[in-house]
């Protein structure tokens, strides 16, 4: 199959798949970020059980393989009478796993904050939550733009899990679409190359956005 034949027959499907990958990536990244911040606050708060819970959460989702996580969500949860749609299972896995890494990045970002910043915040009479929200988190975010950029790429790679569950053709993302095409025609190397190029372009785009943001907000010490 030539490239033009492939694109004329499946071009729309690829475009839909690219948009689905972007949508999943954006959605899961935002979710991972929100949960990552909450878990990080738990991990530094003065209440010991919450700290332990935060650490536990991070270790579990940082170390579980994506496939194992997805299989538990798809096959084990229904036996416990918790029903999620296939797409929801993929989203949950692609939110929770990156959220653990997000929290790890935030923790190491916090470790770069100068102790004087915290002493100053305390001297100004800020409460703990004010200090976290106005001094610690903003600085931690500014010094972790590059790891957070890799996290966005990592989230995109995690969304390839969607190819492991049955989805409607219009829900397919870039990995699933190659499978779909290969089961109907001999797409060969080209069918993979198209998806790979779209993935790599997206990764480069994310990297470029990250580098631009980093130049603007990086804290020069």
């Amino acid at each position: 199959m030539s490239l033009s034949a492939l694109l004329s027959q499946y071009g729309d499907l690829y475009l839909q798949a690219l948009l689905n990958t972007w949508r999943l990536t954006a959605l899961c990244y935002v979710g991972a970020f929100a949960i990552g911040i909450v878990v990080t606050v738990l991990r530094v708060c003065p209440v010991k059980p919450l700290r332990v819970f935060g650490d536990f959460f991070v270790q579990v989702f940082r170390n579980i393989p994506g496939a194992a996580m997805l299989i538990i969500l798809v096959y084990a949860l229904p036996r416990l009478k918790i029903m999620l749609s296939y797409e929801m299972c993929v989203i949950v896995a692609s939110v929770l796993i990156p959220s653990a890494f997000c929290s790890e990045h935030l923790m190491s970002g916090m470790n770069t904050i100068h102790p004087g910043q915290i002493e100053a915040a305390r001297a100004l009479g800020l409460t703990f939550s004010q200090m976290i929200a106005r001094v610690v988190i903003p600085q931690a975010l500014r010094s972790t733009v590059l790891p957070m950029t890799s996290l966005a790429v990592g989230t995109m790679l995690t969304t390839a899990l969607a190819s492991q569950v049955p989805l409607r053709p219009n829900q397919l993302e870039l990995t699933g679409v190659v499978n779909y095409i290969n089961s109907r025609a001999v797409g060969g190397v080209l069918a993979f190359a198209v998806s790979a190029v779209l993935y790599v372009s997206t990764a480069l785009l994310i990297g470029w956005i990250g580098a631009t943001i980093d130049r603007k907000v990086r804290i020069l010490r």
């Binding site: 995109m156 390839a160 790599v200």
Partner: peptide, 22 residues
């Protein structure tokens, strides 16, 4: 380097599973 970092492992696995034998 950019290629290997930007492509999900699953896509590569399918490549080795579906295309390489052919």
């Amino acid at each position: 380097i950019e290629f290997t970092r930007g492509v999900p492992t699953l896509l590569l696995i399918y490549f080795f599973f579906l295309v390489v034998p052919r």
